[in-house]
Computed example of a mutant assay.
Amino acid sequence: MTLASQTLPPQSSARHHRHMKSLLVVPLTIFFVIFFVVPVGLLFASSLNPQTLGQVAVTSELTLDNYIRFFSRSSYLMAAGRSVLLATIVSMVTLVIAYPMAFVIAKTENATRNTVLLILVLAAMQLDMVIRIYGMMVILGDNGLVNQMLVALGLTSPDAPVQLMYNFLGVVLGLVQFSMPFMILTLVGVIRGINPSLEEAARSLGASRRRTFVRVTLPSSMPGILSGSLLVFALSISSYIVPALMGGFRVGVLPIHIYQQVAEGARFQFGATIAVVLFLISAGAVAVYLKVGARNSGGLA
């Protein structure tokens, strides 16, 4: 106990501790308000301003013309659906690939082997995203290593390479490679936190390793599955670099449209409108995902 808590009455001491705990969140609250709440608020306000070419400042004149334009054009609605579909597919593929690796890392008791596996996971995060994507372009391009190998095996011809880039598949592969470490690290912590006695009890009651995994380990790791999937979904639906490089601007997702409106057309108000729609779609999808995940894991909806 501190000297202050020894001299204060019990009720005053409890209030003092609650006051001190509340002070700990003040820096984060200030940072959150300045760098998230204020920018998002300005983004919403700008989306309600009339379209003025090259104007960035928020005005008091309000209109819904930008939203009417967005929802009246099929190209933007298709881009919104494509963004959600892309993020969903990437989340599912990343989870399927990352879970075995996370399980091995979490269950490995040898310290040296565990360190090596973690280094392999973390090594991918040490390089800049653009460098990693360019590395994938060398592998997956029309004249890349994969197509060269297929030509050498006689499975394809140099004149008709397998299209692994500048399409939806290329964007999926790029986003899976980018988000894999985040999913693995999220799952490792949760799997390690599963009480080993639960698995031992299932085995002692006659359950096989496979049944123990399906009935005990997998449900117990649901919080990590949900958290990792949400993280990957958020990273994928808002990604611009991967669709730009691996998709070659041919995969029309919402971040690409935002870039085109703001950087190429100087239509800041309509770009803000697309950004608001992207924000609302992401927030809505996350809310639905959380509710469904809470029900499936036995939590409160």
Rank of each mutant, 00 (worst) to 15 (best):
T2P: 00
S5N: 12
P10G: 08
S13D: 09
A14P: 11
H17Q: 15
H19Y: 14
M20L: 12
S22V: 10
S22Y: 11
L24H: 05
L24F: 05
V25C: 13
P27I: 09
P27L: 15
L28M: 14
F32A: 15
I34M: 14
F36P: 05
V37I: 15
P50M: 06
Q51D: 08
Q51Y: 11
T52C: 06
T52I: 14
G54T: 02
V56G: 13
V56M: 10
V58G: 05
E61Q: 13
E61D: 11
L64P: 08
Y67I: 00
I68W: 04
R69T: 07
F70K: 01
F70E: 01
F71K: 01
F71L: 06
F71E: 00
Y76N: 02
L77F: 08
A79F: 05
A79C: 11
R82D: 00
L86G: 04
L86T: 05
T88P: 09
V90H: 04
S91G: 01
I97G: 00
Y99N: 04
M101I: 10
A102F: 03
A102N: 06
I105H: 05
I105R: 11
I105G: 11
T112M: 15
R113G: 15
T115Y: 14
L118A: 07
V121G: 13
V121H: 12
L122G: 12
A123H: 03
A124L: 11
D128L: 08
M129Y: 14
V130C: 13
R132F: 13
I133P: 10
Y134E: 15
Y134V: 09
V138N: 06
D142R: 07
N143W: 02
Q148F: 11
A152T: 10
A152V: 08
G154F: 07
S157V: 01
P158H: 07
V162W: 06
Y166F: 00
Y166H: 02
F168N: 08
L169V: 08
L169N: 05
G170S: 07
G174S: 03
V176I: 14
Q177E: 13
S179Y: 06
M180E: 12
M180K: 03
P181K: 08
P181F: 09
M183R: 07
L185E: 03
T186F: 03
R192P: 06
G193P: 07
N195L: 08
P196I: 13
P196L: 15
S197I: 15
E200S: 09
A202W: 00
R203N: 03
R203T: 05
S204W: 04
S204D: 11
S208L: 12
R211Y: 09
V216A: 02
P219L: 09
P219Y: 10
S221Y: 03
G224Y: 01
L231Q: 09
A234N: 02
L235K: 08
I237Q: 03
P243N: 14
G247F: 02
P255I: 03
P255H: 08
P255R: 10
I258N: 05
G265Q: 14
G265D: 11
A266G: 10
R267K: 13
F270C: 04
F270K: 02
T273E: 01
T273Q: 05
I274W: 04
A275T: 00
L278P: 06
I281P: 03
A285M: 07
Y289G: 01
Y289E: 02
Y289W: 04
A294Y: 11
L300T: 10
